[in-house]
């Protein structure tokens, strides 16, 4: 059985014929070639696969591609503005050395954007609590928090 899925990804219409058991993250990475969204733990612990579904952060490894039918999806590739201008959150991560190996970074940035959308001026404790769903195995949390603080200050 295949199901046809139509969605908007980073502002562009996309459609695919998928097996219902295909995960959204695999549709994005393998069929749409958007490999910025990472598969880390694959068991919903690490948050590396975080994307925005209709403006809300979700884990793309925890949902089926068919669940995103008709949805508006933004991945890390879609945050970049015109002329490859980086999103302020991406700039802040670069300025503050908010990444080491970089594997968790796409998910961290997508989560951090959601965090500031809900709470534009968070305290340090609120940032740490808000990023609970994202794990950095380099343990570079301190500079990640600084990056989110910088992005919040500049917004």
């Amino acid at each position: 059985m295949t199901v046809s899925v139509t969605l908007t990804v980073n502002g562009k219409a996309a459609s695919a014929s998928v097996d219902p058991r295909m995960l959204l993250v695999h549709l994005l990475r393998d069929q749409l070639q958007l490999t910025g969204t990472h598969v880390g733990c694959d068991t919903a612990q690490c948050g590396a696969c975080t994307i925005h579904l209709n403006g809300r952060a979700v884990k793309a490894c925890s949902m089926l591609a068919v669940q995103a039918n008709g949805a508006n999806v933004t991945t890390i590739e879609g945050l970049t503005g015109k002329g490859d201008k980086m999103h302020p959150m991406q700039e802040a991560f670069r300025d503050c050395h908010g990444l080491q190996c970089g594997f968790c970074t796409p998910g961290m940035v997508m989560s951090a954007c959601q965090l500031l959308a809900d709470n534009p001026k968070p305290t340090e404790a609120e940032i740490r609590a808000g990023l609970e769903g994202n794990i950095c195995r380099c343990t570079g949390y301190h500079n990640i928090v600084k990056a989110v603080q910088q992005a919040a200050a500049q917004a």
Binding site: A44, G47, T50, L53, R56, A57, V58, K59, S62, M63, S111, Q114, L115, D118, G130, E132, G133, N134
Partner: peptide, 9 residues
């Protein structure tokens, strides 16, 4: 509950 991504779904 869980984290913000879990709460959104």
């Amino acid at each position: 509950i869980g984290d913000q991504m879990v709460r959104n779904q």
